[in-house]
């Protein structure tokens, strides 16, 4: 299992989700993606993306204006 750590802090919509997709393309089922961002839309966007693509949102939290989203890759064919 590989963990992809993505630092999208300082970028704005749709930058964090674009960074997520770039890592997702390289990932395999079972891999984890941890996305750090400062864009306030990242948590709802990541939740929607996981719902639409059937990947698993493991955790999403905010602390001091930064957001950390953890996703388990489950929908690769």
């Amino acid at each position: 299992m590989t963990t992809y750590n993505i630092d999208s802090r300082g970028t704005a919509c749709p930058g964090p989700i674009t960074d997520l997709i770039r890592s997702y393309r390289k990932a395999a089922n079972g891999d984890m993606i941890i996305l750090l961002a400062t864009d306030p839309g990242v948590i709802p966007d990541a939740k929607s993306w996981c719902g639409a693509t059937r990947n698993m949102l493991v955790d999403a939290k905010e602390k001091d204006g930064e957001y950390e989203v953890t996703i388990k890759v489950t929908a690769k064919k």
């Binding site: 993306w49 639409a52 693509t53 990947n55 929908a75």
Partner: peptide, 8 residues
């Protein structure tokens, strides 16, 4: 589902 097709 390579990127995530919402509505193929």
């Amino acid at each position: 589902m390579e990127v995530g097709h919402m509505a193929e």
